[in-house]
Design a protein around this nucleic acid. Structure first.
Lengths: 339, 339
DNA sequence: ATGAAAGCGCTAACAG
DNA sequence: CTGTTAGCGCTTTCAT
């Protein structure tokens, strides 16, 4: 690996000039520039990113702390963030935390030690303390939180309007004729489910209906458990809103194992949609989240902070639009009611 | 951010001693060690990873070049790699290339410029030239290829036995009574499909059956196209092996749109399985790949190279076992044949 | 066992 | 416009 010194020697110029050529400084004469470029070519020189970072205190690297990388939703988020980063010549260092607050804390520290220029973080789903984020920010590392809005901390966020989306979905259920509607999945102690519940509650209240909150874990098992509880109620719900797709899948699974189907027995709406869902029947009514954009806009925002284009303005709160996609799983309730 | 110098000053020792304490050198006296540790505590000192890297020429970072991050298969691979890396104090820098050879080349260069200690790469699906990998290796960056075994280059690989797996699946189809069996998805110009076809061909030949190779793109659209071609054949296949899950889903989608279902009209077996598939009917007969392990073992192997525990031994070729999971989509052909 | 000092490869003043 | 030089924060001889 040739160094800048060798390039300078070969081109018969000083290292400073080489450095200037590298950084595209216009004050370099055509002649010098050509000689330096030739030397770079000949030697196959590539600047040492590490050395540059040590001097400039910038790594051109964004840290990404993700709560659950195997959830396809977050795969899309990562994809978006990665694209935005690439466009700006930044690289992404990713750590998966499996929704563990402890791992999350360590991840933030690891990334800060490595002097990432900024941090994209999806905090663990359970509400908790976020002083590690606070510390990172205090140390001068900009942070943008994705998907979940941590409490008690002033930080840029890119999220969707979970309350409104949940409310809209439930309004749809109600408009379809349902009067006994449950919310399933996650609990009020979790960031995202808390809001989605809130939307559900608002819609139920507005319609003068009694709410049925079924709190469970926020995964497939939660969906199965929730279904079991929901179906054993004296007054069985005719419709349910699920907190995320994992929950919905678990719920459908449990329903099927009991010989029940949707929408005939229970109409189902859920947060999240992935294109492969189109393959299966019944198609699920779902709240489509702009996962890729959450990552893309998040990285974009972070990059603006990093590049100083947002000089300590107040924390930005970007809310991206969702789309309610009505499909078979909530169809045909009004008018005919199977038993 | 305090530096090692400030720690030294505060502890009243030399920076060399602090460095020794940091690296856990035993030659440091108890007394010194305590004083230094106290100073580190007081100041909240954290070693600068960049400066250390410049000196040691090691970044404790693995580069990961992935062909398609939103494919859940690769999400699992990444998860595995990330776990192994974390266990060894390494971080993962990930670049997504969307199966573009050009992006892949740039990604490798970017990562090498950043002096990653090693490279985990899933090469683009289309066969191509891999001199960028060759160069990286020549420059002293160990490379481990995952899932796909690039041709014409001596490199460590972690893969599955695609030929055997494909063959086994087709043998199952044949044993179930099928005589007209198609292979759908991908083409011989692609790394993975080429091998899966090979397995298919071997099984068909061994059974003395005529093969039906339907080459398409390696995605949902490919599955739809493949289904269209398959179903319009004079002698319509009664079974198909799909090259991956995307293809299988596309195929099922196209079948359904024509009012056909599996296994009644066409039995379907496919590579890939994800747990959410269990929710849907019919359950698909599938070849389960150890995606997480591919990533985990790959990173593990790379780390051994990086840490010099495999001193330029010959390239390792790790082949992980797959599992044929027989389910409804290939059930019940012998004995009763619906028309 | 500890300290002093020489860099790692680069950038950024500053001088000329 | 170009060259010189002093570090960035750390590790690592080499003396002591």
């Amino acid at each position: 690996m040739p160094t800048i010194k060798e390039v300078a020697a070969r081109a018969g110029v000083s290292v400073g000039t080489v450095s200037n050529v590298l950084s595209g400084l216009s004050t370099v004469s055509q002649d010098m520039r050509r000689r330096v470029e030739a030397a770079i070519q000949d030697l196959g020189y590539r600047p040492d990113h590490i050395a540059r970072s040590l001097k400039t205190r910038r790594t051109q690297t964004l840290g990404m702390v993700i709560s659950d990388i195997v959830n396809p939703f977050f795969a899309d988020v990562i994809d978006g963030a990665q694209s935005a980063a690439s466009e700006h010549g930044f690289t992404l260092s990713i750590i998966n935390c499996r929704d563990s607050a402890e791992l999350e804390k360590r991840a933030v520290e690891t990334l800060c030690d490595r002097r990432v220029d900024g941090l994209l973080v999806v905090v663990s789903i359970e509400r908790g303390c976020h002083e590690h984020l606070q510390l990172a920010i205090a140390d001068g590392t900009p942070v943008v939180c994705l998907d979940r809005e941590p409490l008690g901390i002033d930080v840029d966020t890119v999220t969707i309007d979970n309350v409104a989306a949940g409310q809209q979905a439930v309004e749809h259920l109600i408009a379809t004729g349902h009067r006994v509607v449950a919310y399933v999945g996650g609990s009020a102690s979790m960031y995202v489910p808390a809001l989605r519940q809130q939307g559900y509650l608002a819609a139920m209240k507005a319609a003068g209906l009694r709410h049925i909150l079924i709190e469970t874990s926020f995964d497939r098992q939660g969906g199965r458990d929730g279904a079991a509880r929901m179906l054993s109620r004296a007054k069985r719900p005719t419709a349910a809103l699920c907190g995320n797709l994992q929950v919905a899948l678990g719920l459908l699974q449990e329903m099927r194992s009991r010989g029940l189907s949707t929408p005939e027995d229970v109409a189902v709406a859920t947060f999240d949609h992935f294109d492969w869902l189109d393959v299966f029947r019944p198609q699920l009514t779902s709240i489509v989240q702009p996962a890729y954009r959450i990552g893309y806009e998040g990285a974009q925002l972070l990059l603006r902070r990093v590049l100083g284009q947002l000089n300590d303005s107040a924390p930005q709160r970007l809310t991206l639009p969702t789309q309610l996609r009505i499909a078979e799983s909530t169809a045909g309730f009004v008018g005919f009611q199977k038993t």
